[in-house]
Protein backbone atom coordinates (compact mmCIF):
# COMPACT_ATOMS: atom_id res chain seq x y z
CA UNK A 1 0.00 0.00 0.00
CA UNK A 2 1.55 3.31 -0.96
CA UNK A 3 1.54 6.38 1.25
CA UNK A 4 -1.03 8.16 -0.90
CA UNK A 5 -3.55 5.49 0.02
CA UNK A 6 -2.49 5.65 3.66
CA UNK A 7 -3.21 9.37 3.60
CA UNK A 8 -6.49 8.91 1.86
CA UNK A 9 -7.45 6.63 4.74
CA UNK A 10 -6.16 9.10 7.31
CA UNK A 11 -8.14 11.96 5.77
CA UNK A 12 -11.19 9.69 5.87
CA UNK A 13 -10.50 8.96 9.53
CA UNK A 14 -10.19 12.65 10.37
CA UNK A 15 -13.40 13.56 8.56
CA UNK A 16 -15.14 10.64 10.24
CA UNK A 17 -13.97 11.82 13.65
CA UNK A 18 -15.05 15.34 12.79
CA UNK A 19 -18.54 14.38 11.63
CA UNK A 20 -19.14 12.04 14.59
CA UNK A 21 -17.94 14.46 17.25
CA UNK A 22 -18.98 17.81 15.85
CA UNK A 23 -22.06 16.05 14.55
CA UNK A 24 -23.59 15.75 17.97
CA UNK A 25 -22.57 19.18 19.12
CA UNK A 26 -23.93 20.77 15.93
CA UNK A 27 -27.05 18.73 16.65
CA UNK A 28 -27.27 19.93 20.24
CA UNK A 29 -26.78 23.49 19.00
CA UNK A 30 -29.67 23.18 16.56
CA UNK A 31 -31.89 21.62 19.23
CA UNK A 32 -31.70 24.83 21.28
CA UNK A 33 -34.32 26.15 18.88
CA UNK A 34 -37.61 26.74 20.66
CA UNK A 35 -36.35 25.82 24.13
CA UNK A 36 -36.65 27.93 27.28
CA UNK A 37 -33.61 29.60 28.76
CA UNK A 38 -32.99 27.14 31.61
CA UNK A 39 -33.33 24.26 29.15
CA UNK A 40 -30.91 25.85 26.71
CA UNK A 41 -28.40 26.29 29.52
CA UNK A 42 -28.56 22.56 30.27
CA UNK A 43 -28.06 21.73 26.59
CA UNK A 44 -25.04 24.00 26.32
CA UNK A 45 -23.54 22.56 29.53
CA UNK A 46 -23.79 19.09 28.02
CA UNK A 47 -21.34 19.99 25.25
CA UNK A 48 -19.50 22.80 27.08
CA UNK A 49 -16.34 20.90 27.98
CA UNK A 50 -15.95 19.13 24.63
CA UNK A 51 -17.19 21.21 21.70
CA UNK A 52 -13.90 23.07 21.22
CA UNK A 53 -11.82 19.91 21.01
CA UNK A 54 -14.42 18.45 18.63
CA UNK A 55 -14.00 21.41 16.32
CA UNK A 56 -10.26 20.80 16.21
CA UNK A 57 -11.04 17.61 14.27
CA UNK A 58 -12.20 19.81 11.41
CA UNK A 59 -9.14 22.05 11.68
CA UNK A 60 -6.90 19.00 11.69
CA UNK A 61 -8.69 17.50 8.70
CA UNK A 62 -8.08 20.79 6.88
CA UNK A 63 -4.44 20.96 7.95
CA UNK A 64 -3.85 17.32 7.02
CA UNK A 65 -5.44 17.85 3.61
CA UNK A 66 -3.09 20.80 3.12
CA UNK A 67 -0.05 18.73 4.09
CA UNK A 68 -0.89 15.53 2.24
CA UNK A 69 -2.93 16.72 -0.75
CA UNK A 70 -2.16 20.42 -1.27
CA UNK A 71 -4.00 20.60 -4.60
CA UNK A 72 -7.10 19.12 -3.00
CA UNK A 73 -6.92 21.71 -0.23
CA UNK A 74 -6.25 24.54 -2.70
CA UNK A 75 -8.96 23.61 -5.17
CA UNK A 76 -11.59 22.69 -2.59
CA UNK A 77 -11.18 25.81 -0.46
CA UNK A 78 -11.04 28.23 -3.38
CA UNK A 79 -13.99 26.48 -5.05
CA UNK A 80 -16.16 26.71 -1.94
CA UNK A 81 -15.08 30.31 -1.36
CA UNK A 82 -18.40 31.92 -0.52
CA UNK A 83 -19.77 28.80 1.14
CA UNK A 84 -16.74 28.68 3.43
CA UNK A 85 -17.08 32.39 4.11
CA UNK A 86 -20.61 31.72 5.37
CA UNK A 87 -19.39 28.76 7.37
CA UNK A 88 -16.62 30.82 8.97
CA UNK A 89 -19.05 33.55 9.96
CA UNK A 90 -21.25 30.89 11.52
CA UNK A 91 -18.33 29.25 13.35
CA UNK A 92 -17.02 32.60 14.61
CA UNK A 93 -20.40 33.48 16.07
CA UNK A 94 -20.85 30.02 17.51
CA UNK A 95 -17.47 29.91 19.23
CA UNK A 96 -17.86 33.35 20.77
CA UNK A 97 -21.44 32.57 21.80
CA UNK A 98 -20.37 29.60 23.93
CA UNK A 99 -17.90 31.82 25.73
CA UNK A 100 -20.08 34.88 26.23
CA UNK A 101 -23.63 33.62 26.80
CA UNK A 102 -23.08 33.02 30.51
CA UNK A 103 -21.27 36.27 31.22
CA UNK A 104 -24.44 38.26 32.01
CA UNK A 105 -27.56 37.11 33.80
CA UNK A 106 -29.80 38.78 31.25
CA UNK A 107 -32.50 37.02 29.22
CA UNK A 108 -32.04 38.99 26.00
CA UNK A 109 -28.27 38.59 26.13
CA UNK A 110 -28.61 34.80 26.39
CA UNK A 111 -31.30 34.71 23.75
CA UNK A 112 -29.08 36.51 21.24
CA UNK A 113 -26.11 34.22 21.83
CA UNK A 114 -28.23 31.11 21.79
CA UNK A 115 -29.57 32.32 18.46
CA UNK A 116 -25.96 32.55 17.32
CA UNK A 117 -25.35 28.98 18.47
CA UNK A 118 -28.39 27.73 16.56
CA UNK A 119 -27.32 29.59 13.42
CA UNK A 120 -23.69 28.61 13.93
CA UNK A 121 -24.59 24.93 14.22
CA UNK A 122 -27.15 24.76 11.44
CA UNK A 123 -25.12 26.52 8.74
CA UNK A 124 -21.95 24.39 8.95
CA UNK A 125 -24.00 21.18 9.14
CA UNK A 126 -25.90 22.17 6.01
CA UNK A 127 -22.82 23.38 4.14
CA UNK A 128 -20.72 20.30 4.87
CA UNK A 129 -23.51 18.19 3.43
CA UNK A 130 -23.60 20.38 0.33
CA UNK A 131 -19.81 20.27 0.09
CA UNK A 132 -19.30 16.51 0.23
CA UNK A 133 -22.13 15.96 -2.25
CA UNK A 134 -20.38 18.35 -4.62
CA UNK A 135 -17.08 16.49 -4.27
CA UNK A 136 -18.84 13.33 -5.36
CA UNK A 137 -21.14 14.77 -7.99
CA UNK A 138 -18.37 16.68 -9.69
CA UNK A 139 -17.68 20.34 -10.33
CA UNK A 140 -16.42 22.25 -13.35
CA UNK A 141 -12.70 21.89 -12.64
CA UNK A 142 -10.38 22.69 -15.54
CA UNK A 143 -7.14 21.07 -16.63
CA UNK A 144 -5.19 23.35 -14.29
CA UNK A 145 -7.24 22.18 -11.27
CA UNK A 146 -8.96 25.56 -11.13
CA UNK A 147 -12.65 25.95 -10.48
CA UNK A 148 -14.45 27.31 -13.52
CA UNK A 149 -17.89 27.86 -11.99
CA UNK A 150 -19.45 30.14 -9.43
CA UNK A 151 -21.26 29.91 -6.10
CA UNK A 152 -24.55 28.85 -7.66
CA UNK A 153 -22.98 25.85 -9.38
CA UNK A 154 -22.59 24.45 -5.89
CA UNK A 155 -26.31 24.44 -5.26
CA UNK A 156 -28.45 21.84 -6.96
CA UNK A 157 -31.41 19.83 -5.67
CA UNK A 158 -29.06 16.91 -5.07
CA UNK A 159 -26.46 18.81 -3.07
CA UNK A 160 -29.11 20.67 -1.05
CA UNK A 161 -30.71 17.32 -0.30
CA UNK A 162 -27.36 16.15 1.06
CA UNK A 163 -27.21 19.29 3.17
CA UNK A 164 -30.64 18.61 4.64
CA UNK A 165 -29.62 15.03 5.28
CA UNK A 166 -26.58 16.19 7.28
CA UNK A 167 -28.70 18.63 9.27
CA UNK A 168 -31.24 15.95 10.16
CA UNK A 169 -28.67 13.28 10.88
CA UNK A 170 -26.72 15.58 13.20
CA UNK A 171 -29.89 16.75 14.93
CA UNK A 172 -30.90 13.11 15.54
CA UNK A 173 -27.37 12.27 16.70
CA UNK A 174 -27.43 15.32 18.99
CA UNK A 175 -30.80 14.33 20.46
CA UNK A 176 -29.46 10.86 21.22
CA UNK A 177 -26.43 12.41 22.86
CA UNK A 178 -28.48 14.81 24.99
CA UNK A 179 -30.77 12.07 26.24
CA UNK A 180 -27.66 10.39 27.63
CA UNK A 181 -26.25 13.58 29.11
CA UNK A 182 -29.19 15.30 30.80
CA UNK A 183 -30.72 14.58 34.20
CA UNK A 184 -33.90 16.57 33.69
CA UNK A 185 -36.60 13.90 33.22
CA UNK A 186 -39.00 16.24 31.50
CA UNK A 187 -36.37 17.22 28.94
CA UNK A 188 -35.44 13.61 28.34
CA UNK A 189 -39.03 12.77 27.62
CA UNK A 190 -39.35 15.65 25.20
CA UNK A 191 -36.11 14.74 23.45
CA UNK A 192 -37.22 11.15 23.11
CA UNK A 193 -40.31 12.30 21.25
CA UNK A 194 -38.13 14.52 19.07
CA UNK A 195 -35.70 11.70 18.41
CA UNK A 196 -38.54 9.47 17.27
CA UNK A 197 -39.60 12.03 14.66
CA UNK A 198 -36.07 13.00 13.67
CA UNK A 199 -35.04 9.36 13.33
CA UNK A 200 -37.64 8.42 10.78
CA UNK A 201 -37.29 11.73 8.92
CA UNK A 202 -33.53 11.28 8.66
CA UNK A 203 -34.04 7.75 7.45
CA UNK A 204 -36.44 8.84 4.73
CA UNK A 205 -34.12 11.62 3.54
CA UNK A 206 -31.16 9.24 3.60
CA UNK A 207 -33.04 6.81 1.41
CA UNK A 208 -33.84 9.63 -0.98
CA UNK A 209 -30.19 10.73 -0.93
CA UNK A 210 -28.95 7.27 -1.84
CA UNK A 211 -31.42 6.96 -4.69
CA UNK A 212 -30.49 10.42 -5.92
CA UNK A 213 -26.80 9.54 -5.69
CA UNK A 214 -27.38 6.63 -8.03
CA UNK A 215 -28.72 9.01 -10.64
CA UNK A 216 -26.53 12.03 -9.97
CA UNK A 217 -23.14 10.41 -9.37
CA UNK A 218 -21.16 7.36 -10.41
CA UNK A 219 -21.52 5.49 -7.11
CA UNK A 220 -22.95 2.52 -8.98
CA UNK A 221 -19.59 1.90 -10.62
CA UNK A 222 -18.29 0.78 -7.24
CA UNK A 223 -20.79 -1.52 -5.63
CA UNK A 224 -18.97 -1.58 -2.30
CA UNK A 225 -19.75 2.11 -1.80
CA UNK A 226 -23.45 1.52 -2.38
CA UNK A 227 -23.37 -1.45 -0.02
CA UNK A 228 -21.86 0.68 2.72
CA UNK A 229 -24.56 3.32 2.22
CA UNK A 230 -27.25 0.65 2.28
CA UNK A 231 -25.92 -0.87 5.50
CA UNK A 232 -25.68 2.60 7.04
CA UNK A 233 -29.32 3.04 6.15
CA UNK A 234 -30.08 -0.16 8.04
CA UNK A 235 -28.09 0.95 11.07
CA UNK A 236 -29.92 4.26 11.03
CA UNK A 237 -33.21 2.43 11.08
CA UNK A 238 -32.13 0.42 14.11
CA UNK A 239 -31.04 3.64 15.78
CA UNK A 240 -34.58 4.92 15.32
CA UNK A 241 -35.96 1.65 16.73
CA UNK A 242 -33.63 1.82 19.73
CA UNK A 243 -34.57 5.45 20.34
CA UNK A 244 -38.25 4.54 20.37
CA UNK A 245 -37.65 1.55 22.61
CA UNK A 246 -35.80 3.73 25.11
CA UNK A 247 -32.47 1.99 24.58
CA UNK A 248 -30.57 5.25 24.43
CA UNK A 249 -27.00 4.02 24.45
CA UNK A 250 -27.66 1.71 21.53
CA UNK A 251 -29.43 4.51 19.68
CA UNK A 252 -26.40 6.80 20.11
CA UNK A 253 -23.96 4.08 19.10
CA UNK A 254 -26.06 3.47 15.99
CA UNK A 255 -26.11 7.13 14.88
CA UNK A 256 -22.36 7.17 15.48
CA UNK A 257 -21.94 4.12 13.28
CA UNK A 258 -24.27 5.62 10.67
CA UNK A 259 -22.15 8.76 10.45
CA UNK A 260 -18.94 6.74 10.29
CA UNK A 261 -20.27 4.44 7.56
CA UNK A 262 -21.68 7.33 5.56
CA UNK A 263 -18.36 9.18 5.63
CA UNK A 264 -16.45 6.03 4.73
CA UNK A 265 -18.98 5.31 1.97
CA UNK A 266 -18.51 8.77 0.49
CA UNK A 267 -14.74 8.42 0.42
CA UNK A 268 -14.93 4.89 -0.96
CA UNK A 269 -17.15 6.19 -3.76
CA UNK A 270 -14.63 8.95 -4.44
CA UNK A 271 -11.53 6.74 -4.35
CA UNK A 272 -8.99 7.27 -5.82
CA UNK A 273 -10.32 10.71 -6.63
CA UNK A 274 -10.60 13.57 -4.16
CA UNK A 275 -12.65 15.92 -6.33
CA UNK A 276 -14.45 14.92 -9.48
CA UNK A 277 -14.22 17.15 -12.52
CA UNK A 278 -17.50 17.34 -14.42
CA UNK A 279 -15.70 18.70 -17.49
CA UNK A 280 -13.30 15.83 -18.11
CA UNK A 281 -12.85 12.73 -15.94
CA UNK A 282 -9.06 12.94 -16.28
CA UNK A 283 -9.05 16.48 -14.87
CA UNK A 284 -10.31 15.14 -11.55
CA UNK A 285 -8.06 15.53 -8.52
CA UNK A 286 -6.76 12.19 -7.36
CA UNK A 287 -4.66 10.98 -4.48
CA UNK A 288 -1.75 10.96 -6.92
CA UNK A 289 -1.94 14.17 -8.91
CA UNK A 290 -2.98 16.22 -5.84
CA UNK A 291 -0.45 14.79 -3.41
CA UNK A 292 2.65 16.01 -1.66
CA UNK A 293 5.97 14.29 -2.26
CA UNK A 294 6.69 10.86 -0.74
CA UNK A 295 9.11 12.46 1.72
CA UNK A 296 6.52 14.78 3.22
CA UNK A 297 3.92 12.03 3.20
CA UNK A 298 6.28 9.74 5.10
CA UNK A 299 7.03 12.32 7.80
CA UNK A 300 3.38 13.15 8.18
CA UNK A 301 2.46 9.46 8.33
CA UNK A 302 4.87 8.88 11.20
CA UNK A 303 3.55 11.96 13.00
CA UNK A 304 -0.09 10.99 12.51
CA UNK A 305 0.37 7.36 13.51
CA UNK A 306 1.97 8.44 16.78
CA UNK A 307 -0.18 11.47 17.55
CA UNK A 308 -3.72 10.51 16.57
CA UNK A 309 -3.92 7.63 19.10
CA UNK A 310 -2.58 9.93 21.84
CA UNK A 311 -5.23 12.50 20.97
CA UNK A 312 -7.92 9.83 21.10
CA UNK A 313 -6.61 8.69 24.47
CA UNK A 314 -6.80 12.03 26.23
CA UNK A 315 -10.01 13.03 24.51
CA UNK A 316 -11.77 9.88 25.64
CA UNK A 317 -10.38 10.53 29.11
CA UNK A 318 -12.18 13.91 29.00
CA UNK A 319 -15.46 12.19 28.24
CA UNK A 320 -14.86 9.95 31.21
CA UNK A 321 -14.20 12.89 33.54
CA UNK A 322 -17.44 14.52 32.39
CA UNK A 323 -19.51 11.34 32.29
CA UNK A 324 -22.02 12.59 34.86
CA UNK A 325 -25.34 13.87 33.64
CA UNK A 326 -25.88 17.62 33.59
CA UNK A 327 -27.95 18.64 36.59
CA UNK A 328 -31.38 20.09 36.06
CA UNK A 329 -31.58 23.88 36.18
CA UNK A 330 -34.83 25.66 37.05
Amino acid sequence: MDLNIVWFILITVLFTGFFILEGFDYGVGMLLLGRKENERTQFVRAIGPVWDANEVWMITAGGAAFAAFPHFYATMFSTFYLALFLMLLALILRGIAFELRGKFQNHDWKLIWDGAIIFGSFVPALLWGVAVANLLKGLPIDSEMHYAGNFFNLLSPYTVLAGIFFVLLFAFHGANFLILKLADERMILLLKRKAAVLGIATWAVYLLFIVASIFETDVMSKMVGVLIFASALGVLLSSWQFARAGRQKSAFVCTTVTIAMTTVGLFVALFPRLMVSSLMPEWSLTIYNAASTPGTLLIMTIAAVILVPIVLLYQSWTYKIFKERVARID
Binding site: V56, I59, T60, G62, G63, A64, A65, F66, A67, A68, F69, P70, H71, Y73, A74, T75, M76, F77, S78, F80, Y81, L84, F85, M145, H146, S292, T293, T296, I299, M300, A303, A304, L307, V308, V311
Partner: peptide, 25 residues
Protein backbone atom coordinates in the same frame (compact mmCIF):
# COMPACT_ATOMS: atom_id res chain seq x y z
CA UNK B 1 -4.53 29.83 2.61
CA UNK B 2 -6.80 27.74 0.45
CA UNK B 3 -9.63 30.20 -0.13
CA UNK B 4 -7.68 33.24 -1.29
CA UNK B 5 -4.19 31.86 -1.85
CA UNK B 6 -4.73 28.59 -3.65
CA UNK B 7 -1.65 28.98 -5.86
CA UNK B 8 0.43 29.56 -2.76
CA UNK B 9 -1.08 26.41 -1.24
CA UNK B 10 -0.18 24.44 -4.39
CA UNK B 11 3.35 25.81 -4.58
CA UNK B 12 4.05 25.52 -0.85
CA UNK B 13 1.79 22.70 0.29
CA UNK B 14 4.57 20.16 0.52
CA UNK B 15 6.36 22.42 2.99
CA UNK B 16 3.75 24.63 4.61
CA UNK B 17 1.16 21.95 5.22
CA UNK B 18 3.42 19.89 7.48
CA UNK B 19 3.93 22.44 10.27
CA UNK B 20 0.28 23.44 9.99
CA UNK B 21 -0.92 19.87 10.40
CA UNK B 22 1.58 19.31 13.20
CA UNK B 23 0.27 22.44 14.88
CA UNK B 24 -3.23 20.97 14.83
CA UNK B 25 -2.11 17.52 15.96
Amino acid sequence: FGMNWSEYARFMGDIFGAPLALEAL
